[in-house]
Amino acid sequence: MKTVPVLVVALVPASLALAIAFGSVDLGPAQLADALLFRGDEIAREIVWGVRAPRALAAFACGGLLALAGALLQVLLRNPLADPAILGVSGGAAAGALAAMLLGVGAAGLNLAALAGASIAAGAVFAFSLGRSGWNPYRVLLTGVALASGFGALVGLMLSLAPSAQVQGMLFWLLGDLSPAADPSVALVVLAACAALAFSQSAALDVLILGEDKARSLGVAVARLQAIAFGCATLATVAAVLLGGSIGFVGLVVPHLLRLSGIHRHGALLPLSACLGGSLLALADTLARTAAAPAELPVGVLTAAIGVPVLLFLLGRLR
């Protein structure tokens, strides 16, 4: 039982090291070691510290945020198939980002537009699910699904209207792509904050699995807990989507992988989801950068290629 957490935690430095060691430019072990210690060749130093390290950390932050959001949504919506895309936040961000591309505004404008789209989606989900009779997980689910398909239609419309030169950039954004990711620091801070906040609620989340009434009878302030966890999941999803676009399957699959390995208490599940999601996306992104170098594959394609069979396998095991 103890080996799984140890392996998952050990995977964090290992995946980051691999992400820094491999890239489109071959750096030998000696060169790599020098560059890591800020010695030797300036180009190698720039590649390691200026390009690969931020990219590796961006991938880690993105994957960690998505997996954390997925783990939270799965317990809150009591639905094993819940993942960050279900909030409609990814769809809102995608519609905003594509609109910005269509209008030809710069990178800052694109991020702002994606943030605006994500906020509109999140706001709508909150507004529609906090009904008069309190919080309702099913309304969250339905609102999120409705918004996601609405934004999907909007995205399709923009794709069909866009000049062909822009379509490839748009498709990369939609598939999930970390190549424009520059500064992972905001996402890392959000990851740490969300993980800490979610962890502080982990014992109450364990009890929430028994259902809202039972949790209430055991002393859990259910509405407050749901608001905190939903807020966390939304914030994490927004931060991840702004950094890497709509990367799928990490948020869905990672918490299930841990549950199937015997990790079910949220005190362990939440932090380990963040670690495993981050490590897996750092590895997937390394593969995306190197598999067809010098061309880059959208990392979302790789996570889907791994995620779909894993998901089908899991569905087979879930009765």
Binding site: R78, P80, F199, S202, A203, A204, D206, V207, I209, L210, G211, D213, K214, S217, L218, G219, V220, R259, H264, R265, G267
Partner: peptide
Amino acid sequence: LQDEEPDFWGSVLDYVMLGRYPRSRSA
């Protein structure tokens, strides 16, 4: 309660231990 979500992933002991939540909630 009469009905309960049966989707608990842990052991029987883990399940019973949730009854301790009102008295001991340290993670």
